[in-house]
């Protein structure tokens, strides 16, 4: 169930906000809503948001989670910032390929590569 606890681990390094998920499965719509709200607040807090979302903990995600990522990407771009994704499990990456969202998002194999490209 959704609760007051954060669904994210957030770390800011230089000017990049790095986000990891607490949950291994990003399926529950209430949790997805909470995750979206939390990352949205991180975007709001930056004039020029540079957000790196790390999927290293994630085993499953649903199309609702993809929808939230798209909304966040649009919001970041609207502020002239950048959203990057990294450490996506091959099975989950296939979901991005099927939906062609691998073309919409900037996806990197490792956090180091993603950070280097900001």
């Amino acid at each position: 169930m959704a609760s007051g606890e954060s669904r994210l681990r957030v770390q800011k390094e230089n000017d990049v906000t790095q986000v990891e998920f607490v949950d291994r499965n990003i399926l529950d719509e209430a949790n997805i809503q909470q995750i979206g709200d939390e990352i949205s607040a991180l975007i709001d807090a930056e004039a020029d948001p540079k957000i790196l979302i790390n999927f290293s903990n994630v085993d499953h995600l649903s199309s609702a989670a993809l929808g939230t990522l798209i909304t966040l990407n649009t919001k970041v771009k609207g502020k002239g910032g950048e959203l990057r994704l990294t450490n996506i499990d091959p099975q989950i990456y296939e979901v991005f390929v099927i939906t062609k969202l691998n073309r919409l998002f900037q996806i990197y194999d490792t956090a180091e590569q993603a950070l280097g490209a900001f």
Binding site: S62, S63, A64, L66, G67, T68, I70, T71, N73, T74, V95, I98, T99, K100, L101, R103, L104
Partner: peptide, 21 residues
């Protein structure tokens, strides 16, 4: 089709596509 250029940034409409895939 959620993969078309005009739909790619819409946040919904991918569930059935994934099921079919």
């Amino acid at each position: 089709d959620p993969t078309l250029e005009e739909n790619i940034e819409k946040p919904s409409g991918r569930g059935l596509m994934l099921i079919r895939a």
